[in-house]
Simulated assay, not measured.
Amino acid sequence: MTPGQRLRQIANVLNGSTLLGLLLAACARTSVSPGPHGLLIASRYRWRLPLAGAFTVGNVVLFRTGPEVARSNPVLLCHEERHSTQYAWCLGLPFLPLYFIAAAWSLWRTGNPASANIFERHAGLQAGGYPDPQVTTGGTGPTAPERNEA
C-alpha cells in the first residue's frame, strides 16, 4: 500500500464513510474481506438498490458477485478505488449528496446518471462500464435525434 492509499484509508475511517460502508455490508449480510490498496471487498450484495454491479462507500467496495470475480476485475476495482479517494477528498459523507446532485445533473443533460457526472467521469466512465457522454451544449436536456423534415 502506498502512503497515499494509507492516508486515504485513515481519512475514510476518521470521516465515518468506511464505517458506514461496513454497516451497510453487515446489514446486507455480505462477506467482507481485505482487498488491494487498502480497500475492503464486500461480496454477494443482494439488495435491489443501487442497480450497479459494484459501488463504494468509503473504503468498502460492495459487489454483487463473489470475491473471486470481484478480484479478477482490476479495471473495475481501480474505478471503485477512485470513488474511495473521492470520499476522502469530500471529507466523507458529504460525498453522497454531492454524488446524487451530479447524477441528477447527468440524467438531465444526457439521459443517464453517469455520462456527465463529474465523479464518474473522474473515476473513468469506461472502467465503470458506463456509456460515453452525449452532453448537449444548450442545457435543455438530452439531445434528440435530428430530423430531416421536408
Rank of each mutant, 00 (worst) to 15 (best):
P67Y: 07
R6K: 14
L7I: 02
Y45R: 06
Q126A: 14
Y87F: 15
R29M: 13
G128S: 09
A52H: 09
Y99P: 08
V32T: 14
Q9C: 09
F63T: 01
W105R: 05
A26K: 14
S31K: 15
E81C: 03
L98W: 01
H122Q: 08
A144P: 03
R48A: 11
L20D: 01
S72W: 06
G53W: 01
L40F: 08
V61T: 06
L19T: 15
W108E: 00
W89H: 11
H79A: 06
E68Q: 09
F63W: 12
R44K: 13
A25K: 05
E146N: 10
Q134S: 08
G141D: 10
R46K: 14
E120V: 02
L39Y: 05
G92K: 03
G138Y: 10
E80S: 02
A26D: 11
W105V: 14
N15L: 11
R29I: 06
G111Q: 03
R82Y: 02
P113S: 07
R147I: 04
A114K: 01
T56M: 08
Q126V: 11
R8I: 07
D132E: 11
S72Y: 06
A116Q: 01
G138R: 10
T136Y: 01
S31P: 15
S115L: 07
N148S: 14
T2S: 15
F95C: 02
P113D: 00
G139S: 12
E80I: 13
L51S: 12
S106T: 00
A114H: 08
P94Q: 07
R46D: 01
V57G: 00
I101D: 00
G53L: 02
A25T: 07
G141Q: 10
T30Y: 05
N117S: 05
A70H: 08
I41Q: 00
T110Q: 03
I118C: 04
C27Y: 03
P145R: 10
F100C: 14
L14S: 14
N15I: 08
L76P: 06
G4F: 15
L107P: 00
G128V: 03
L22N: 07
L125Y: 10
S43W: 06
A150P: 06
W89N: 03
A104T: 13
L19C: 13
G21I: 04
S31V: 15
